[in-house]
Design a protein around this nucleic acid. Structure first.
Lengths: 259, 259
DNA sequence: ACCAGCGGTTCAAATATTAAACCGATTAGG
DNA sequence: CCTAATCGGTTTAATATTTGAACCGCTGGT
């Protein structure tokens, strides 16, 4: 593990629910020596990737991230170009909608809109990272990856999040077949209790999965009419975002998913 | 120069006007060996801080920056909380407005709005970094820094951007006196030909300068009535943002600026 | 008044980083 | 159509950087 990799990995310990972290905590969580973490964090701080709370000297993510993200968005407006589509989804569905990006072996939250239509709604955390096997978004991606990559992603232990999480590799693979035919993945409380998730994949210009869009609703509001409606909303949105990002739907049965 | 610092410094070669850079170019610009740059970029790419254009294999800024920026904004909504104020400035002034953050020895563009009121307007680049001595924003900051820091920031060669750029240390220091009394810095085409800039400082909770807000107008539209109006708009906005960010205006004559 | 934990420092030992030459592939020019 | 230059990327021994245990002084809780 290179030094750069270590430094960057430290940033992953910050989240919406843990926005500030102290030196010792960070060292413990990352499993690095305190002196190492200090030096790495100092490097990160010098470049503005983190900054320190002046009174507590805890670290938080820094303004350089905003600056660089702004540059990326201005020349490669992924988030901005999908926003209106997400907005429309949110209004049409009256539920929380989310746009995820496929990372190395996880999904990362790029954007989401929590519905205003209901007081009880699914809450999301900005920039959250979730594993592939337990969420509708994850399954949507897994279903359309090259077969090899799918197996690779499912090669480790499948973590259990709820009583209904599929932790059996075979069961997941089986489910993926249905998703492939359907174009949409659905999970009833597989990632979080009480949440019903639905999502469809987004494709790159080479026809590879790059992310997903989906809807997350309290399972109590899920019923057949709404499910139908949601499916069409999601399918439409996925197509629109794929197109907005310059992607193309892969030809049926290509992309390594067959046999 | 540590390895982490080197890796992070590579990200600074990406900008709105140069969104994609190749390996050799990067090595040349940074003055590092090609093999070194490759390894650093590979580390950055593994973590999603950059990604490669599949067809050209040039690098561009990656989605991890968005993710982390989102987390920061969601828990520390600097940009979002200033947005409405910037919006109001834009509408009231009919000119391009900008919000800058004070970095190590430069200002970094956090946000801006180009006016829709005029076809001829001042254009800005997302995430641009500008030096302190030549812009109104920079002078606004310099004027309210601790004296030592001001001198430090002006210790190097002062780059000339236009015929009217102040490159004489003494002249800048002199101008800062006026800015201190005024609370607003003004520069007629000191950073870019044809652009008249005005800006006021923003303060942190400890009364230290952390950034600036300002207006940039084609100098041909600048006249005494508009100048008056702009001054009040800027002053109001600076106060509002300082407050929105939990900052306080420093007491007069404190902050090391006296004597 | 204590102890435990904090952020931060030190320095010899251990390890990762570097740079020059080299590779095959691609592009530009004569 | 052939040459030369440049591209992204790889390899290697030589080297500079990183590491971690023990140790600060300080703060906050009991």
């Amino acid at each position: 593990m290179g030094t750069v990799d270590k430094a960057l990995s430290l940033l992953d310990y910050f989240s919406e629910s843990r926005p500030e972290v102290g030196l010792s905590d960070l060292a413990r969580m990352a499993g690095f020596d305190k002196a190492t973490v200090l030096r790495l964090m100092t490097s990160l701080a010098d470049r503005g990737f983190v900054e320190q709370n002046v009174t507590t000297s805890k670290y938080r993510l820094g303004p350089a991230l905003l600056r660089l993200a702004n540059i990326r968005e201005s020349t490669f407006p992924q988030k901005a170009s999908a926003r209106p589509i997400l907005q429309r989804m949110s209004e049409e569905s009256g539920e929380t909608v989310h746009l995820m990006l496929l990372g190395k072996d996880s999904l990362e939250t790029l954007d989401f809109i929590e519905t205003k239509a209901h007081a009880m709604r699914v809450h999301m955390d900005a920039g959250e990272r979730i594993s592939l096997h337990a969420s509708a978004s994850g399954l949507a991606c897994l279903a359309f990856m090259p077969e090899k990559q799918t197996h690779q992603a499912l090669s480790g232990e499948l973590e259990r999040f709820t009583p209904r999480t599929l932790t059996d590799r075979a069961a997941v693979l089986d489910l993926l077949k249905a998703v492939r035919q359907d174009g949409i993945a659905e999970i009833d409380q597989g990632f979080e209790d009480g949440v019903f998730g639905m999502a469809a994949p987004i494709f790159s210009s080479h026809g590879a999965v790059t992310g997903s869009v989906g809807i997350a609703t309290p399972f109590t509001r899920m019923n057949e009419p709404f499910r139908k409606k949601a499916r069409s909303i999601i399918q439409q949105a996925a197509n629109d975002i794929t197109r907005a990002w310059g992607g193309i739907e892969p030809q049926a049965d290509i992309g390594g998913t067959a046999a």
